[in-house]
């Protein structure tokens, strides 16, 4: 489902003496449907960078990143947009939303983008928010005012609203209490069970051991950092 072939990434900082920083060098691996793979490595090893490259958020200088047959590295913006809408989900560490939009609509939006009617999309959103223990009185408020943990759960609900065949999870269990952590892990297990290919970053080792089938040490591909 997700396949990386000889992928490399450099940053060129034009405004700082055109410094060129190599961050990822020659990564190859693949993730099959129903599989969950953890990216590991020390802080700064490039886990998030690699994940952003897979999402198309960062440009990739060399190699191929195939998701459902589409090479993200070469794809047109509209192809990436379609892929993100239909196939590739991403739960980032940060919630980025238009201020004042109610939480329920924030969570329902990925479904609305797929053309699912408003009431149906909101129904699914409500079920997820309930599962993640966001009190109903908050649903009509914008999540921008919520606490960090609440924002994180809204972000997860939004990421799991649509049953994406491929998912990228950046620290999905960080800053969650035990109960909510359990809910998130079971969401991940459900996604695996329905055949989603998942790449995740988990600092929480117990969580990683529970849901991940394999680990990839990104540090090995990072020039300048010892493997």
């Amino acid at each position: 489902m997700i396949e990386l072939r000889d992928v490399s990434k450099t940053f060129t900082l034009h405004n700082q003496g055109s410094a060129v920083i190599e961050v990822i060098n020659d990564v190859s691996f693949s993730v099959a449907a129903g599989e969950c793979v953890a990216l590991t490595g020390a802080s700064g090893a490039g886990k998030s960078t690699l994940m952003r490259m897979i999402y198309g958020n960062y440009l990739t200088q060399a190699g191929k990143i195939l998701i459902d047959g589409l090479d993200i590295v070469q794809a047109q913006p509209r192809e990436v947009i379609t892929l993100r809408r239909d196939v590739l989900g991403y739960v980032s560490q940060f919630l980025r939303v238009v201020p004042r939009v109610p939480t329920l609509d924030v969570v329902a939006e990925p479904l609305r983008a797929l053309g699912i009617p408003s009431d149906q999309a909101q129904g699914r959103a409500a079920a997820l928010l309930e599962q993640l223990n966001i009190p109903q009185r908050l649903w009509s408020l914008s999540p921008t005012t919520f606490s960090g943990g609440e924002q994180q759960r809204v972000n997860i609900a939004r990421g799991f609203a649509h049953n994406y065949p491929a998912m990228l999870l950046d620290e999905p269990t960080a800053s969650l209490d035990a109960a909510n952590r359990k809910v998130v892990l079971s969401l991940i297990e459900d996604a695996k069970a329905r055949g989603a290919a998942i790449i995740g970053i988990f600092h929480d080792e117990a969580a990683r051991d529970r849901v991940c089938d394999r680990e990839i040490d990104v540090g090995r591909y990072t020039p300048g950092i010892a493997a």
Binding site: G56, L59, P77
Partner: peptide
């Protein structure tokens, strides 16, 4: 030119980098 989040998060051209920063 490119995807909005890509251009904003990983700008390639010197001017775009300046603009974003």
């Amino acid at each position: 030119a490119g995807l909005t989040d890509q251009v904003l998060d990983d700008p390639q051209h010197a001017y775009s980098q300046l603009l974003v920063s």
